[in-house]
Nucleic acid binder design. Structure first.
Lengths: 253, 253
DNA sequence: TCTCTTCGTTCCGTATTATAGAACGCTGTT
DNA sequence: AACAGCGTTCTATAATACGGAACGAAGAGA
């Protein structure tokens, strides 16, 4: 659980990857747009883009001339294969939960002390802007999905994690190490984690862990929405849904 | 339809991409393995791998220490979004066809004079080695899937395409421009293309095009298998299945 | 246990090359 | 007609990616 930033040995490659990563935010980009965003020289970016195009990682929109992700990325994504197969397995159950609860449902995995969101499902009515959170990171100590995973990590990791500064996002955020550890114990007892406006004011969320066949937490699912709708009497029902899903998902991976 | 190889402006980036592309063939690779495969210096490859790891495009297997594709690639693949959504739409219909016919079903798109395979479905019994063809390329003039697309391209492209040397793969391969053009006219009339051992001895295949809402060929689907099983009386049935599927898929994209 | 092999990793000098900056041509706009 | 914004090209130089050799660790085999 070391947080030391890994060393970049090839600077030109780092730049190129930065350029490529721009396309995760916006599907079509031009030379100038990227060079401004990254503060790089235009001709530099142009060289990088041209190379990516030659290697088919990028291709050009025949109409606008702008660059977009290409076949090479698609091929790579196929090669990812089953590394992130949880997503495929979990997706239908998540969609089902989203429809039933009319709330948002998220899937995340623990990665380097953080939660990385892999999948998001919205109730069927509004499919809009679904990609918002995908690929984004969040802290473990102040989100339902994060706490659900943190609670079931090996004890030494919990110990190390809670020993660092815990930044407050709202007045409900747990910032004390001892308090956090008690909370995690509670979560282990209950089987689920609640985030009552600890990360964002007005947003409540309930999360539960998924275990692999070795019994380690490999992911977590959460249902999230406006605190006003997450009344005390609704929680058992939400947990029941979550529990069903995570058990099935757990056995299927 | 020019075939000039696009110019690589940043050589170090090309190398890095070559390294990354290795992971499309084999999911887990070590430094030495890659350096031998590409004929590059070991320390060079090591620097590249380290950088990819720092940028999270690669991560390391905690047990073996080998490198594998990482979260960054996953994030990119999500950003691909609907660029290749045909795959998602087509997959269930393809699987259905594979199960019904007990043959292999492929989805491909036209790309720079070639067919690129995007999806492959095998009959449910044997899911083995399914990734074989994915991302691979093939010629348009000697495969069922390729001819199905070629036939419906704009006339000037057909003209240009047939004017070049057509390499023979088997004794059935069409190598004469005029003959090819006649064949394509037939395909347009029939609505489907046959490849009777034109690319590989003993393999027959039937392909049909998918059109987008502007009426352009954007993809094709083919059913492929041992020629011995593709008897004359079976073709109408196979075509019926194909036709149903491509029509539905076409309307859904 | 000791050797031998094989792997990933580190180091450093040099030759390669990625890069910045200015200039060009193009397109669409005011 | 002048302008603004875009992608592209060119070239010199400073920056750095790279090759080669050497190291430490881990595993195999005798």
């Amino acid at each position: 659980m070391k947080n030391e930033t890994k060393k970049v040995k090839v600077n030109s490659l780092k730049k190129a990857i930065d350029v490529l990563n721009c396309f995760t935010c916006k599907p079509k980009l031009g030379v100038t747009e990227i060079s401004m965003k990254l503060g790089l020289n235009k001709s530099n970016v142009h060289n990088i883009l041209t190379t990516f195009e030659a290697m088919e990682y990028l291709e050009r929109d025949t109409e606008t001339g702008k660059y977009q992700l290409g076949l090479g990325i698609f091929t790579l994504s196929r090669a990812l294969g089953d590394s992130f197969s949880i997503t495929k397995v979990a997706q239908p159950y998540m969609q089902e939960m989203a429809n039933q609860t009319k709330e948002r449902v998220y899937l995340g995995i623990p990665h380097e002390d953080e939660v990385v969101y892999l999948e998001a499902c919205y109730p069927a009515d509004k499919m809009s802007l679904m990609r918002s959170l995908l690929g984004e990171r969040a802290n473990m100590y102040c989100t339902g999905i994060g706490k659900a995973m943190l609670a079931f990590l090996p004890e030494e990791k919990i110990e190390e994690y809670s020993s660092r500064p815990l930044k407050a996002f709202t007045e409900n955020t747990i910032t004390d190490a001892e308090e956090l550890k008690k909370e995690l114990a509670n979560i282990r007892r209950n089987g689920y984690a609640m985030d009552k406006m600890e990360h964002e004011f007005g947003i409540t969320c309930i999360g539960a862990p998924i275990f692999d066949k070795e019994g380690n937490v490999c992911a977590a699912v959460s249902i999230s929405g406006p605190s006003l709708r997450f009344t005390a009497e609704r929680i058992p029902e939400l947990y029941r849904l979550l529990k069903e899903s995570i058990q099935i998902i757990g056995t299927r991976i």
